[in-house]
């Protein structure tokens, strides 16, 4: 069996092994490649940064553990950014698997910034019904969520004395693992005229460019790279953030070496496989001609 046939019939377990190796190695021996930022993420950052201190930001964290590595770092960084700017955070999820992850994030970052639930932020929890929930929020937040995640009545909370519905919020960010971005655009952002950004898994990022192009989204952050970019922007603007606990800063940044390595491997293997494919094809044609 020559090289070309070998490559074309390569056992996929060998590829699995290479991928595993290329992920583990850079994690153990980091190279720390410099991370560039893209305009899509910069515009999310500057939108949040440009809001006057103490604005109300509604964060929908619509993901579950399966996309934790991609989106949880973004949630941490966004929360840190909001609290850094003293924004009031209204955080909720449309995914049943989400609450426990958000709970981790908001409690940890909240404690770090000394923010208290009910006054500086409110974790509304989960409600099923996607669009029905978002639609409800446009009429009344406390009506849709009579109690928060901890089963405390929301109507009494100081944070909901000024804000009654989505329209009163200054910004919406949807951190989404699925198709909830459309729901937020269709039922909240567009009809209520509240600007909005989306941080989504890299899978869906390309799909949201029509909305970004049309100005319906201010910015898009795609996957772990987007989160890493946000971290970089945050660290540039707020130097004390860098020292603000390892869990928050640089969680996504760490993964970028491995990301580059595996991408390079996949690209090279595709090119190699294609070259072999062409050689094999040519050979076949020649054989046919000779026969």
């Amino acid at each position: 069996m020559d090289f070309v046939t070998l490559i074309l019939n390569l056992d996929r377990k060998i590829i699995f092994g290479c991928v595993a190796l290329l992920v583990v190695w850079p994690l153990l021996v980091p190279i720390q490649m410099p991370i560039g930022t893209t305009p899509e993420v910069r515009s999310i950052f500057s939108a949040i940064d440009a809001l006057p201190n103490g604005s109300d930001v509604m964060i929908a964290a619509d993901y579950d553990p399966s996309s934790k590595p991609e989106l949880q770092p973004f949630t941490y960084s966004l929360l840190a950014h909001c609290f850094e700017k003293d924004h009031k955070v209204h955080i909720l999820t449309l995914w049943p698997g989400g609450p426990a992850l958000i709970q981790q994030a908001i409690e940890e970052v909240g404690a770090q910034y000394g923010k208290s639930s009910g006054t500086d932020y409110c974790f509304l929890g989960y409600k099923p019904g996607n669009a029905a929930v978002v639609g409800g929020l446009t009429n009344s937040i406390t009506g849709t969520y009579p109690t928060d995640f901890y089963n405390r009545p929301t109507a009494n909370m100081p944070i909901y004395q000024r804000v009654q519905r989505v329209k009163d919020c200054d910004y919406i960010v949807d951190i989404a693992a699925g198709a909830t971005v459309e729901v937020w655009i269709a039922f909240a952002s567009a009809p209520e005229n509240v600007p909005m950004s989306a941080a989504c898994t890299a899978v869906s990022a390309a799909g949201y460019y029509p909305y970004y192009q049309a100005g319906q989204l201010d910015g898009i952050s795609g996957g772990m790279k987007g989160s890493a970019e946000y971290d970089v922007l945050l660290m540039d603007k707020y130097p004390n953030f860098k020292n603000g606990g390892a869990r928050i800063a640089g969680n996504a940044v760490k993964g970028m070496d491995a990301q580059s390595a595996v991408h390079l491997f996949i690209v090279l293997s595709i090119i190699l496989a294609n070259i072999c494919y062409f050689i094999a094809n040519k050979r076949q044609r020649e054989e046919r001609r000779n026969a």
Binding site: G118, T119, N156, M157, P158, Q161, R162, Q164, D168
Partner: peptide, 9 residues
Amino acid sequence: GLEQFASIP
């Protein structure tokens, strides 16, 4: 014990 707020729209 009802919390206070700054302004109401």
